[in-house]
Simulated scan of single mutants.
Amino acid sequence: MPVYMNGELVLYGFVGDNYWREGFTSTEVLEALAEHGTDNDLDVRLNSGGGYAFEGLAIYNALHVHKGNVTIHVDAIAASAASTIAMAGDKIIMRAGSEMMIHDPSGYTFGTAEQHQKAMAALDKLGSQMASVYGARSGNDADKVRQVMKDETWFTAEEAVA
């Protein structure tokens, strides 16, 4: 599925890879933004269960610095890395029946106890960075947001706004 269609950014599927043409990457988003023009207002249609955290952060940052107004339309779901992307909107619209989910980042390691401890520290640092993004958008303290992330919290449209 193309990422740029009819003047809109359409982010459907897995964040960070284009498995069977059902996902999108930060590179594709940057290419679409260049085609759209940096000063033009932008509508982003988002429907994703998530994917790679750093890809989500890269897309968030690309949209966050876009000079035109960015409106995020959550068509059904913005979960995990996709919820981070949603935070880049100057305006976020959650459509009827849509949901948003935030949680602590996850990963896997193979190796010694020391390697697992390093991975834990890296995930903890990434979780704190993501909490800062959610906190900045919501106006909530990052420590409070981090606990909500650790609880893996699902929000309806109304709950997300609150």
Rank of each mutant, 00 (worst) to 15 (best):
E55W: 08
E55C: 06
G56P: 02
G56M: 07
G56W: 06
G56L: 02
L57H: 11
L57C: 12
A58H: 08
A58L: 10
Y60C: 04
Y60W: 03
Y60I: 01
N61S: 14
A62R: 12
A62Q: 08
A62D: 08
L63G: 12
L63H: 09
L63N: 07
L63P: 06
H64S: 11
H64G: 00
V65D: 13
V65P: 02
H66D: 12
H66A: 14
H66N: 13
K67Q: 15
K67Y: 04
K67F: 10
G68K: 01
G68T: 02
N69C: 03
N69I: 05
N69W: 01
V70C: 12
V70F: 10
V70T: 15
T71K: 07
I72C: 00
H73Q: 01
H73C: 07
V74P: 03
D75N: 09
D75F: 02
D75S: 11
A78I: 06
A78P: 05
A79V: 00
S80Q: 04
S80N: 13
A81I: 08
A81H: 05
A81L: 04
A82W: 05
S83N: 12
S83C: 07
S83R: 06
T84H: 01
T84P: 04
T84A: 14
A86K: 01
A86L: 13
M87D: 03
A88M: 05
A88T: 05
G89Y: 04
G89H: 02
D90G: 13
K91L: 10
K91V: 09
K91A: 09
K91G: 02
K91Y: 03
I92M: 10
I93M: 04
I93P: 00
R95C: 14
R95F: 04
A96C: 00
G97R: 05
S98V: 09
S98Q: 10
S98W: 05
E99C: 10
E99N: 13
E99V: 15
E99K: 14
M100T: 13
M101F: 12
I102L: 15
I102M: 15
D104Q: 11
D104L: 08
P105F: 03
P105N: 03
P105S: 09
P105K: 11
S106D: 07
G107A: 05
G107C: 07
Y108L: 01
Y108P: 03
T109Q: 10
T109M: 11
T109A: 15
